[in-house]
């Protein structure tokens, strides 16, 4: 069971990857199989179980795409 959970407003993601770069668990990646209404491949979690809810992804996201929850 993961200690944290991240959810996304994927329709607002601009694929800048700042969250990907700074996630200490390296569990975020762009979803290349999707294109959002803005025309970007939006952000997604690749290993949900590894999220510790540290919040760094949301800290670095310029577009308030990410909500973070923690145990």
């Amino acid at each position: 069971m993961a200690k944290g959970r991240v959810t996304f407003r994927t329709e607002r993601c601009k694929a800048c990857e700042l969250c990907v770069r700074f996630c200490p668990q390296q569990i975020l990646s762009l979803n290349k199989t999707m294109i959002n209404p803005l025309g970007y491949h939006p952000i997604a979690v690749v290993r949900e179980e590894a999220c510790n809810g540290c919040g760094i992804c949301a800290l670095m996201c310029p577009d308030l795409v990410i909500t973070v929850e923690r145990e």
Partner: peptide
């Protein structure tokens, strides 16, 4: 919830460029 949109921002999406 440990990180979410602050009340002092409206819900309008930013017009800024990616990143």
């Amino acid at each position: 919830v440990v990180a979410q949109r602050p009340e002092s921002l409206t819900d309008a999406p930013f017009h800024y460029c990616p990143g």
